[in-house]
Amino acid sequence: MRTVSLNIPDNIDINEPELKIILAGELYERERLSLGQAADLAGLSKRAFIEILGKFGFSLFSQSEEDLLSDIENA
């Protein structure tokens, strides 16, 4: 795993765990990380990550049309 160092402006009130959740949620929504990988990046269990996604404005469900059609077909 790589380590990234960021300089955050002092006027932005954010802590490291919150920043990790935001990054993990964004990468998960963009389908760059699986749910497990995103939870790991955020430092949370899958269950905890799922529970916190909505609080940060992220969706647990895929936004792709292909996934939607597959879900409808399977229903």
Score class of each variant (00 low, 15 high):
Ala75Tyr: 07
Arg30Lys: 15
Asn74Lys: 06
Ala75Gln: 09
Leu35Ile: 13
Asn15Lys: 08
Ile72Tyr: 04
Ile22Asp: 07
Leu68Ser: 09
Lys55Leu: 12
Leu69Gln: 05
Gly57Pro: 03
Glu73Leu: 13
Leu6Gln: 06
Asp13Pro: 06
Asn15Tyr: 13
Leu19Pro: 02
Glu65Trp: 08
Ile52Trp: 02
Glu18Asp: 12
Ile12Ser: 05
Glu18His: 11
Glu51Ser: 14
Phe61Gly: 02
Asp10Lys: 12
Leu6Asp: 04
Ile21Glu: 05
Phe49Gly: 01
Leu27Glu: 01
Ile50Ser: 01
Leu44Arg: 01
Phe61Pro: 00
Asn7Cys: 07
Glu66His: 06
Gly43Ser: 00
Ser64Asp: 03
Asp13Leu: 12
Arg32Leu: 11
Ala24Tyr: 00
Ser5Ile: 15
Leu35Asp: 00
Glu18Asn: 12
Met1Arg: 14
Ile52Phe: 07
Gly54Tyr: 09
Thr3Ala: 15
Thr3Ile: 15
Ala48Glu: 00
Gln37Met: 11
Ala42Val: 05
Glu73Cys: 10
Asp71Ser: 13
Ala75Phe: 10
Glu16Trp: 06
Ile12Cys: 14
Ser70Trp: 07
Ala38Arg: 01
Gly25Thr: 06
Ser45Thr: 07
Glu73Gln: 10
Phe49Thr: 01
Ile52Leu: 07
Ser5Glu: 15
Ser64Ala: 07
Tyr28His: 13
Ala75Thr: 08
Arg47Val: 15
Ile72Glu: 04
Glu51Gly: 05
Arg47Glu: 15
Ala24Leu: 08
Thr3Ser: 15
Gly54Trp: 02
Gly36Ile: 01
Gln63Leu: 08
Ala24Thr: 04
Leu35Val: 01
Ile72Asn: 02
Asn74Glu: 11
Asn15Met: 04
Lys55Tyr: 13
Ala48Leu: 10
Leu69Ala: 09
Glu51Gln: 14
Ile21Ala: 05
Phe58Arg: 03
Glu29Arg: 12
Ala48Cys: 04
Ser45Ala: 08
Gln63Trp: 07
Val4Lys: 11
Glu51Cys: 12
Ile12Lys: 06
Glu16Met: 05
Asn7Pro: 03
Ala75Glu: 10
Met1Gln: 10
Leu41Thr: 11
Glu31Ser: 12
Asp40His: 06
Ile8Ala: 05
Leu68Ala: 04
Leu60Thr: 03
Ser64Trp: 02
Lys20Tyr: 06
Gly36Asn: 09
Leu53Ser: 03
Pro9Ile: 11
Ala24Met: 03
Pro17Ser: 09
Pro17Asp: 06
Ser45Asp: 05
Leu23Lys: 02
Asp13Ala: 08
Lys20Phe: 11
